[in-house]
Simulated scan of single mutants.
Amino acid sequence: MKIIISAALFLTLVTPMAWSAGTVKVYTSESKEPKTLSNAEHLIDLVGQPRLANSWWPGAVISERQASVVAEQKHKALLARLTGLAGQETGDTAAAINAVRQQLQAIDVTGRQLVNLDPDKVRVVENGNPPLEGEYSLWIAPQPTTVTVMGLVSNPGEKPFTPGRDLASYLDDQSLLAGAERSYAWVVYPDARTQKAPVAYWNKRHIEPMPGSVIFVGFADHFWTKAYDGLNTDILHSLTHRIPE
């Protein structure tokens, strides 16, 4: 049974006798080639492995094979949509859209399963230890020392993480590109949580991203066309489903 979002859903649909153990490819920074874990019947059989005891779980990503196919299709559709929008615009607006497309083209996405991977939570939280069935991939990376600024900004890329620093200050040295949202930015946390954060002088609040977060400056609302409707949501989907580097 695949992990989707609610483990309780699986418990109502299948019985333990119907479960078959999953196979997981585990990617770590220690090796370019993944290690394969077979016969993982439940999530704790994976995240409770002694060799993973010192992992940084907030940034770990587990994905399921069929969900990955869907995520990759959505990402390709997003890139195609941005290409089409850029073709309908001219000048600075077209250049801004192409800049965002290039940033998103550089990331790889997967069928991320939105479950807590911290072994302590898996053990004690109700429905936190769902069964595994099928083929999965798990990515574990060291805790980063940077945050990444993306979107309609003049200087996208990784920036040093500073404890206590608020999200808006990471944008102080940025110029916003044509069509950018100027009052809000989004923070995508390593565990796939997202938060819309006020960053303008009139509404700014102190919100601190954690290491490994993405700060995304999206597209402003367009009152005269529906061509951009849902675009920020689609981009955030790709950012929450990206494979850790």
Score class of each variant (00 low, 15 high):
88 Q>R: 12
218 G>E: 04
127 N>M: 07
28 T>W: 03
119 P>K: 02
126 E>D: 06
51 R>K: 14
49 Q>D: 15
106 A>T: 06
117 L>Q: 08
170 Y>T: 13
17 M>P: 08
57 W>T: 08
221 D>S: 14
94 A>V: 00
239 L>M: 08
7 A>W: 08
6 S>C: 08
91 G>E: 08
73 Q>V: 00
21 A>M: 02
83 T>F: 11
130 P>D: 08
230 G>H: 05
2 K>T: 06
226 K>D: 15
128 G>R: 00
237 H>A: 14
152 L>K: 02
221 D>W: 01
62 I>R: 03
123 R>G: 09
147 V>D: 06
109 V>K: 02
27 Y>W: 10
121 K>A: 14
145 T>K: 12
98 N>E: 14
184 Y>K: 09
47 V>F: 06
200 A>W: 02
120 D>K: 09
115 V>D: 01
36 T>F: 01
106 A>H: 03
215 I>K: 03
203 N>D: 13
136 Y>C: 10
208 E>N: 03
96 A>F: 10
51 R>Q: 15
116 N>P: 01
19 W>N: 11
89 E>W: 05
25 K>I: 04
24 V>Q: 07
222 H>R: 13
129 N>W: 00
3 I>N: 03
167 L>I: 00
149 V>K: 00
79 L>S: 11
20 S>T: 12
84 G>A: 13
184 Y>L: 15
57 W>K: 09
139 W>T: 07
9 L>C: 11
150 M>Q: 07
9 L>K: 12
243 I>K: 11
110 T>L: 00
134 G>Y: 06
211 P>K: 01
25 K>R: 13
10 F>W: 12
95 A>Q: 10
225 T>Y: 03
114 L>G: 09
190 P>F: 00
154 S>R: 07
196 K>D: 07
229 D>R: 09
53 A>H: 13
37 L>S: 05
94 A>T: 01
148 T>V: 06
102 Q>T: 14
203 N>G: 11
146 T>V: 09
207 I>Y: 09
163 P>F: 05
113 Q>M: 08
66 Q>G: 11
181 E>I: 04
235 I>L: 08
1 M>S: 10
229 D>N: 13
113 Q>E: 10
149 V>I: 10
103 Q>D: 03
219 F>R: 00
214 V>K: 05
32 K>Q: 15
69 V>R: 10
207 I>A: 05
18 A>I: 10
76 K>N: 10
221 D>A: 14
230 G>S: 04
20 S>I: 03
156 P>G: 07
202 W>E: 09
185 A>K: 00
154 S>Q: 06
